[in-house]
Design a protein around this nucleic acid. Structure first.
Lengths: 207, 207
DNA sequence: GTCTATAGCAGGATAGAC
DNA sequence: GTCTATCCTGCTATAGAC
């Protein structure tokens, strides 16, 4: 009944909704089911959230905030191996895999109007790839676009796909998930990461 | 009334369903809407398809068959530049972008039981990457798993993501789609494709 | 804050005429 | 093959008691 309970209930709803959305998709999940699995009354959900959209948007805003916090966290002392850094990033993203799946599903839809997926990409890129994202105000130069495309399609996309498809891939190919993580890290190091190492701090691959 | 009409109607339904599924997702699309937009009666859909699932499964089987045909098509004479080959593959995939979006959305769901996404990946990998996929019968060796993981996460995934996110990316970053295609091809060449060139057995193209 | 009850409608699916 | 009409379930959302 106090603020504590309010937040607990709200968080319980969000947690269950996140699981169900990632399991069955947003439109495939009913408020009834969320209420049932969260052990709360259906009407209570409408006390805490305006409508169904409000639930998923709250989840998106939450993950964006958490990613921002992660990217501005205290960095450990000394130089960290780039591979080690990626491993940490993967561990973080893995713990958010459900909402990332939902975000990806929704961003694939044509009607999707919010840009959480790109926002999320920018945070990951800025943070882990150590690339300075050009300020989004003002016109984006062709060089910036080239850089962002590179980071997005050969950096962020493999990373995020690894996180969201890891389990299914392991099951399908009867592969130990830990082995898969090693395989992925090796490939990622040999492709995206080594393309950075070759050409100085900011990547400018141009003949 | 003849077989011709039957196929025309069936195909019209499939075409509209594909558009709507990619626009609004499978669960976000109603049979009513498909019927309305296809200009046919709702009951007619149930004459041609067992249920809603039958529609999406037909679409998945169709794209798999088309991809198989594409991969066994007559190859043009002479050596083709690897980049040119990828451009062709992208053009093919782009023409199928709607169903690929749907396939990706569905494969992200936890409850997704069919493996069309992985089947599709194997076709693209086998075909365009010129990699011999290990026969899926029998246990898969660690080396095969490593190879497949590499091709999947740093080859297929960027390729397919480029196809399905190209338009949204261009809009979001105010980038000309044709420029983006160039940027992507450059990055893809510098990462995934050059990782093949370095390490021997397959492929021999390098400027 | 949390519940009961229900409105109100849209969805998937079918029966049966033509 | 195609249409009209309809069933009925399950959905989102709200009113109102406690």
């Amino acid at each position: 009944m106090s603020r504590n309970d309010t937040h607990q209930t709200r968080n319980a709803i969000l947690k269950v909704a996140e699981e169900l959305f990632s399991e069955k998709g947003f439109n495939g999940t009913s408020i009834n089911l969320i209420a049932k699995k969260a052990g709360v009354n259906k009407a209570l959900i409408y006390y805490h959230f305006k409508d169904k959209d409000d639930i998923i948007n709250s989840l998106f805003e939450l993950i964006i905030r958490e990613a921002e916090q992660y990217s501005t966290r205290a960095q450990p002392e000394g130089e960290m191996d780039i591979r080690e850094k990626i491993e940490q990033e993967i561990a973080f993203l893995q713990s958010k895999q459900n909402i990332l799946k939902v975000m990806m599903m929704e961003s694939l839809k044509g009607e999707d109007q919010h840009n959480y997926f790109f926002q999320c990409a920018e945070l990951v890129i800025k943070n882990e790839m150590e690339v300075n994202i050009p300020a989004s105000e003002g016109p984006t130069s062709a060089d910036n676009q080239r850089l962002m495309a590179h980071e997005f399609f050969t950096g962020f996309v493999p990373l995020i796909s690894f996180v969201v498809f890891r389990e299914k891939w392991s099951t399908y190919y009867h592969c130990d998930p830990q082995d898969l993580t090693r395989f992925f890290l090796d490939s990622f190091t040999n492709t995206h990461l080594s393309s950075k190492a070759e050409s100085g701090p900011q990547v400018e691959n141009r003949p």
